[in-house]
């Protein structure tokens, strides 16, 4: 439904700009996360630009391994899912340059893209043949199915309240002040969605999928060099895209780039600060958690929208 005021070429240019900007911002957020976590643990921490160093370093590495085509395609699927997700969500509301490709019913497409990358990653990592990858994929997919439920219920509640499956119209329905945000007009859906966000982001209480400091590092166990860089940038843009989606759904979108950056930052750090104080859940505990109060809140949100 977005008025496509730009012709194709300028639109393409701004798409590239916004994707590159999202990757850059996602990497900076990654650096800030490492710095914040280091300060919480009483350390000095790496410089904020450390993710850039890591990214370029892995690009400059050599590889000579061969695990089959699907192994190569895994990070590509993940990056493609992340970029596809990002391109469907309007970043700056009302600005034709950063409106991306929003259309009627795109919320369904967004939800599909959110899990497309994980599935591609699972296929690719399984091709690598490392047992730790398979263990992590099993954990990740079961956790994904669990947090998908409250998130979908929250999205259904928002869509029913707006009467539309278009992200653009959902943002339009929240304009006119902070009180119109779905965060306040539909708090039950917000609770369900923001609890699901903790699992979606895979930081501390639910980071057993990645298990960053243990023997099974998760699906990326066998990935090196350029694959690793594709996954790092894919993860950066995926994190930003998820936060932009939440901003559009609950925080009334953004009318300027600055507002978008600030809101994305706060949504991202919601999961970081929760992760800083809570220890890790095991997979079955995580599944039980997501099927508990978040799902109950989601069901209540749908019922409330239907009844009132």
């Amino acid at each position: 439904m977005s008025p496509s005021e730009l012709s194709l070429l300028p639109k393409l240019f701004w798409v590239v700009v916004s994707v590159v900007g999202a990757i850059a911002y996602g990497l900076v957020i990654g650096g800030i996360i490492r710095k914040v976590m280091a300060r919480i643990q009483g350390r000095i921490g790496p410089p904020v630009y450390q993710p850039y160093l890591d990214l370029f370093k892995v690009i400059f590495q050599r590889t000579a391994t061969w695990h089959g085509y699907m192994f190569y395609l895994g990070p590509v699927f993940r990056a493609a899912g992340a970029i596809g997700l990002f391109l469907l969500i309007p970043v700056v509301f009302g600005d034709p340059r950063f409106d991306n490709f929003s259309f009627n019913g795109d919320l369904l497409m967004v939800m599909y893209f959110m899990f497309f990358g994980c599935l591609g990653m699972a296929l690719g990592a399984a091709e690598g043949g490392h047992p730790h990858s398979v263990v992590a994929i099993t954990r990740g997919l079961s956790q994904m199915t669990a947090y998908e439920l409250p998130f979908s219920l929250a999205v259904v509640a928002i869509a029913a309240q707006t009467g539309s499956f278009s992200v653009h119209q959902i943002v339009a329905a929240q304009q006119g002040g902070v009180g119109h945000w779905f965060l306040f007009t539909n708090p039950l859906a917000a609770v369900a969605a923001f609890l699901a966000f903790l699992g979606m982001n895979m930081y501390s209480p639910f980071d057993i999928v990645l298990a960053p400091q243990e023997i099974p590092i998760g699906p990326p166990t066998e990935y090196n060099s350029a694959f690793m860089s594709a996954m790092m940038s894919g993860r950066a843009i995926f994190g930003v895209a998820k936060c932009v989606l939440y901003m559009d759904l609950f925080l009334g979108g953004a009318t300027t780039i600055l507002a978008a950056i600030v809101k994305v930052f706060f949504i991202y750090f919601w999961s970081i600060f929760v992760g800083a104080v809570f220890p890790r859940f095991r997979t079955e505990q995580a599944v039980r958690f997501f099927l508990g109060w978040p799902t109950a809140a989601g069901v209540a949100a749908v019922l409330a929208v239907m009844l009132f």
Partner: peptide, 20 residues
């Protein structure tokens, strides 16, 4: 790796797999 000497400030991180 921990707070006293904090090697992460030099950009040194631990990776659990030889591939990385």
């Amino acid at each position: 790796a921990t707070a006293r000497f904090d090697m992460e400030r030099l950009g040194i991180a631990m990776r659990p797999t030889p591939r990385q």
